[in-house]
Amino acid sequence: MRKLKRLVSIMAIMAVVLAPFCGSKITALADGPTTFTVKYVDDTSKWRYQPLASWDDTKGHGYISELEHLIKDGDSLIIETDTTANICKINIPNVRLANLTVLSGGSANVTAKGFDEFYALQGCTAVVNGDVKNAHVYDYSIVNMNNNVEYLEVVNAVNDEMRVHATIGVLGTVDHFYAHALKNIHSYHLYNFKENTFRMNLGWVSTPEGNYSTTAPAAPATPAAPAKPSTGSSDYDDVPKTGEVPMPYIPVACVLVLCLAGKAALRKTR
């Protein structure tokens, strides 16, 4: 019985040690897009994150530095409302976000490789570093976008408002700008703002004429391939993978050396 127990223990140890090295392929699990929410937590006096679409006070939270390591291309980020804290700084220069949303009253400074969608909800303050495909800025927001913007929409969704009131600066170019309020008395529809010329102050565009166009550019002759939203391993184009599959020589050799060293140490202690 004792011998059997020993044998079982040995087999278990072997399984634990060798399991990571079994097989010649190391496959990573393909994760789908994740939404992260960031909020200033008074107890910690810091901005913290949860991997959730909305903050849950009953659940745990992690450091922003951890978020910056976890977040990946195609993920979304929501900055919660908090008017008492310092601005939330997120630095993820190698990640392209599917969506950045700064909630009403929130303050954020986010650096990323790029943003597919950026929402600045009513009354927020945001600085965004990275090209933005579609930006939607809601009323009374103060937003600086320090790179290029393809489509900038400024909205006043309050029923009785007749114009927009956002304040926006863009250091890059703006391809298409559309500002409108629900009653739509005052709106803009402009194109091709030159680099570092787009300025809007409380809803009024102060960019000098000559730095933008009032007419839409001609449609491109060959549009880019349609973007189907996809997740995990199908995000990339389908091209034969011609890399050499690595054999786990090094990890196994390390285990061998450690075992030999262990045996030598055991002999010495006898």
């Binding site: 140890i13 055991l266 006898r270």
Partner: peptide, 26 residues
């Protein structure tokens, strides 16, 4: 010590067999 020594010997054998197999396969 005996058990540990046995485990280590077994691991060494397994590693040598695995390395040998992969090298031969290559």
């Amino acid at each position: 010590r005996r058990i540990l020594s046995g485990v280590l010997s077994l691991l060494i054998l397994v590693c040598l067999v695995a390395l040998g197999y992969w090298l031969w396969q290559d």
